[in-house]
Amino acid sequence: MAGNNSVNISFTVNGENFNNVNVPSRQHLADYLRSQGFTGTHLGCEQGACGACTIEMDGKAVRSCLVLASQANGANLKTVEGFDDEMMEKVKQNFLKHNAFQCGFCSPGMLMTTKEILLNKKKLTRDEIRSEISGNYCRCTGYQSIVDAIEECINEIN
């Protein structure tokens, strides 16, 4: 047996430094972030199937329940609390306008998935948008309003 039950790592969350913190080896990143007060990252299934915990890790969307906290060594993480740039503010306005969420539990993951769609700068049809968000579960809306909001974001950007 090698290694330890906790690991000392450094990383950033929304630009804030976390230097030399000890994380339990077995803890996934979502639980770690939540324990530090980033409770906007939600857990729906802990097996990658619902998309609620999707965050940004080094510029890419990842399921934070399928990444160990220890794997975040050296990473730049962004959670919903840090989605405050101009593009994401616009996205939020469109989500609000189209009522693209009801209970709000899926929203952090849905916003991250939207962010990645927009960063890819592709003009997508409604069916393609549905394909891109098909890993994010929403029980409330039935998805149409979310597709409406993302479609408007894409039109504004392209």
């Binding site: 047996m1 090698a2 290694g3 802990e46 990658g48 399921r63 399928l66 160990l68 794997q71």
Partner: peptide, 21 residues
């Protein structure tokens, strides 16, 4: 990548002694 391993770990379907990243 851990995308199949982590679900198994989270659900305690797999309990290895050590993960080699």
């Amino acid at each position: 990548g851990g995308q199949s391993l982590l679900p198994a770990l989270n659900m305690r379907l797999s309990s290895p002694t050590c993960l080699i990243d």
